[in-house]
Write a protein that binds this DNA or RNA. Structure first.
Length: 487
RNA sequence: GGGGUUGUCGGCUAGUUUGGUCUAGGCUUCGAGACUCGGGCUCUCGAGAUCCUGGGUUCAAAUCCCAGCAGCCCCA
């Protein structure tokens, strides 16, 4: 078996190797670009990400966010306006310090945005004048750069990534808090329902907040190796930035006030890592139909010169009827590849459904439909193809979603025994519910002693009462939190 | 941040331990042709590598030494 063909490792035996192979063999990314932590995103990944972006943007616009595009360069003086923010991000900033062939020094060095608060908010200060301008909700789709110290992996963590960031300003704290709720709903509607990625929403502990935020809420999903991957986070910024950037409005009573702010950042190039990992199998990618660039691959089975045209004509007919029904199909009519080759290729790429059409099928007025997720094969009468395809696509979406949900659910544990917690994290991975005292030092020690276990925070929507003692230090516990290893 | 390890045709690799037989071998890929194909079919011919980069040691370097770049793994 050549290495250029299918995957040579099983997902459940060596997830890390499996991931590397899928990324390469499904032609998602090429890691041969010669800058550390930067990779090339190949067409298949970009097509998937485009679908993902579209779904998110539709949802955001429905909820009143307007698109904008801000410059990628931020002057150092802007960047430094909010003290906590700078402190948090400074170690990760790439700077532009010179320009031109002679390397002429730039007067004030420019940050390549690691996130856009400090680019946007000076403009917010100019644009927002009255209560009539509020709420003010902007989003931008862009790439950002962070000088990551941790090991980089394609999609999971790199020094350049692609995301959407929303930035919002409100007249009151209550409205800002409501926006946080709305962001969670957006996350649920898109990432959970459309991408079929389950997650838990946590309020992060004080010491793990976004730099400059009052509170940080983040969605965590669980990767097949039992480690958590952080997906979107939404931040209640309070008035920290509005005070630094002088974003004020005049309220109905003529009084000048600082706005209340939130921001939200779904990193699509990272979420795709969850999609690859959660849904993929030993044959390669498995894409949820909602984000598959091609939903149905039609493969003609040609056995002689005489029937070539008949078979291809039938394929085209089916293609058109599917297109008319709003499905995205493609015919792979490549005469140089055998059907077997095509089966493997499109399975590797994760196309949800395959239709085979050969002379035998045409004689009996049927086609063969094969599901990518479970390999189920059915013979379908020609006049029922459209309906059956739609059913199958829905079935795949549902089944991927359930499978992923069950995996997460099966890896939630509950323990008040520190040794047991260590053992769970070491053996199976997953998230363990524990009592915790709330002190950062204690969390630090736990991270060391559990070999990487990180406090994710308190679970939202559950209101879990703290009682008993911190599992590590034995002091009175102030909160029920979840701990897990993370990417 | 610290430690380890690797870098040879587009991909996977043999060769490196013990410098010379390497004009760098194989599979795959790619190109031309045959084969008309219900799970990566088979055959013929051809192409593709200043052995990551720079320096050093030597009569002689893919092979030994140093530095840089990049990848992977482990630890903080």
């Amino acid at each position: 078996m050549s290495d250029d063909k299918g995957l040579t490792v099983k997902k459940n035996e060596d997830f890390s190797q499996w991931y590397t192979q899928v990324v390469q063999k499904a032609e998602l990314a090429d890691i041969r670009y010669n800058v550390k932590g930067f990779v090339v995103f190949r067409p298949w990944a970009v097509l998937i990400m485009n679908k993902m972006f579209q779904l998110l943007e539709q949802e955001l616009e429905k909820k009143g966010h307007q698109p904008a595009l801000f410059p990628a360069l931020i002057p150092e003086s802007n960047f430094k306006k909010e003290a906590e923010h700078v402190e948090g991000f400074l170690p990760e900033v790439f700077w532009v310090t010179e320009a031109g062939g002679e390397g002429e020094k730039i007067d004030e060095r420019l940050a390549l945005r690691p996130t856009s608060e400090t680019a946007m908010y000076q403009m917010f200060a100019l644009w927002i004048r009255s209560w009539r301008d509020l709420p003010f909700k902007i989003y931008q789709r862009c790439q950002v750069w962070r000088y990551e110290g941790k090991a980089t992996r394609p999609f999971i963590r790199s020094r350049e990534f692609y995301w959407i960031e929303t930035h919002n300003a409100f007249a009151t704290l209550e409205e800002a808090e409501k926006q946080v709720q709305e962001d969670m709903e957006t996350t649920d509607n898109v990432i959970h329902k459309e991408y079929a990625i389950p997650f838990l929403f946590f309020q992060r502990p004080e010491h793990d907040k976004f730099a400059g935020a009052v509170h940080t809420y983040a969605a965590d999903t669980l990767m097949p190796d039992g480690k958590v991957l952080q997906l979107p986070s939404t931040h209640l910024l309070g008035q920290n930035f509005s005070k630094s950037f002088e974003i004020k409005f005049v309220d109905k009573n003529g009084e000048s006030k600082y706005v209340w702010q939130t921001c939200y950042g779904p990193a699509v190039s990272r979420i795709i890592a969850a999609v690859i990992s959660m849904h993929g199998d030993n044959k390669g990618l498995v894409l949820p139909p909602t984000i598959a660039p091609i939903q149905v691959i039609i493969i003609p089975i040609i056995t002689s010169k005489e029937n070539t045209e008949i078979v291809l004509a039938k394929c085209k007919e089916i293609l058109e009827s599917l297109e008319k029904a709003g499905v995205s199909p493609k015919v792979d009519a490549d005469a140089e590849r055998t059907p077997g080759w095509k089966f493997n290729y499109w399975e590797l790429k994760g196309v949800p459904l395959r239709i085979e059409i050969g002379p035998r099928d045409i004689r009996s007025g049927q086609v063969v439909i094969v599901r990518r997720d479970n390999g189920a094969k059915q013979f379908v009468k020609e006049n029922e193809v459209v309906n059956r395809v739609k059913e199958a696509l829905e079935g795949i979406q549902k089944s991927l979603s359930e499978k992923a949900y069950n995996f997460l659910n099966d890896h939630l544990y509950d323990s008040q025994d520190y040794d047991e917690v260590k053992k769970i994290l070491a053996d199976k991975g997953g998230l363990v519910r524990i009592n915790w005292c709330g002190l950062e030092e204690c969390a630090e020690e736990m991270k060391n002693e559990t070999n990487g276990g990180v406090i994710r925070g308190t679970l939202l929507g559950k209101n879990e009462e703290a009682k008993g003692n911190c599992i590590r230090c034995g002091n009175t516990s102030t909160q029920v939190v979840y701990i897990s290893k993370q990417y």
